[in-house]
Design a protein around this nucleic acid. Sequence first.
DNA 1: TAGATTGTTAATCGATTAACAATC
DNA 2: TAGATTGTTAATCGATTAACAATC
Lengths: 205, 205
Amino acid sequence: MPEKIIPDIVVGRLPIYLRALQRMLEENRRVTSSQELGERLGISAAQIRKDLSQFGEFGKQGTGYSIEFLADQIKKILHVDQVWDMAVIGAGDIGSAVARYQGFANRGLRVAMIFDNDPSKVGSQVGPFTVKDIKTIKDSVREAGIKVAMIATPSQTAQEVAEELVSSGVRAILNYAPINLNVPEDVKVQYIDPVIHLQRMTYYL
Amino acid sequence: MPEKIIPDIVVGRLPIYLRALQRMLEENRRVTSSQELGERLGISAAQIRKDLSQFGEFGKQGTGYSIEFLADQIKKILHVDQVWDMAVIGAGDIGSAVARYQGFANRGLRVAMIFDNDPSKVGSQVGPFTVKDIKTIKDSVREAGIKVAMIATPSQTAQEVAEELVSSGVRAILNYAPINLNVPEDVKVQYIDPVIHLQRMTYYL
DNA sequence: TAGATTGTTAATCGATTAACAATC
DNA sequence: TAGATTGTTAATCGATTAACAATC
């Protein structure tokens, strides 16, 4: 029996739902409905129900969804019912900010190490981490079993760093360098480039 | 005659095309084709041609596109043939990194000012900027005619900052706080939350 | 029970792709 | 000219929405 393939666009909305649910939990809410969730997020209630139905039945007719239960289920689906250690490559402004970022807590991810190629940075402290030499990526990342990494180097070095990471066992890369990476098919890449988002808005100005 | 409405998803790809074209220019390339561009970006050649055809005819049969010409045209379409001044709110790790970011150069955007509400930060230097008091947002932003802002405050203050910005004339907001903002319809918001991107990948691990 | 809301089906809507005449 | 590549149309594919029976 072939496993059902979930559209990537659906997977992409689950983290949005999860974030909203966790916020509701902080507000000490207990239950919600597809309609309420949809209004908060600007997504139709039908779409939320449809998305969730791809993975199972999580609600109750008449009453809606237990926020805690649904959040737990989505965490399981996204594999963030565990904590993934991450490597950060590049200890410049962006890499350092990411390494110190408090926003990973309770969301299934944590920074475990940070690397740079600048001898004057290697050995220095960034938040709770001592910057490691980029030459040691392979050993450190492989030994720690790290599968997730963030690239925050200049564009010129991003591709070679990506290849290093992949050959060290990394399977998911979040790339802050404004350049497209070529990686094997089974490696996932996501991009964060503020300019891309900004230019998407200046069109309407 | 009603102006043709361009799908948002098409607008969203233009910055990607532009970034690739500018990189080709740096490589001293002169012409490219929809096929080559598509291969670099993992997008079909047909889609690129279809997207561009929404805005005009920019290529030549048999030879393809002048990289410089096409880049200039896309810049005009996205309104980044000018430079937009931006305000950054929040002078923590992320706000400071953004204020110092070199990646805005030549892409139609530049940081003009940065604000914080912490008295110990107000007056200090962040890159080339002196941190301003958040209380002065309204006057400073309005007077400078700023239309674009980036929010890099804690989640709790993001919504009220957004309202302040909107009432000061801002029409495009890039939000680094992991929370959905409620703004008037004619104000654009984009979100950057690394965790959203990461969780989208852990699904496949 | 009556009201509310789910999960799901079918209909609609929109986006992507394939194909090709036009033409550089 | 022959080869290459565009811009565009029609066909395909996929995603969203509307509607409602089921049921808490």
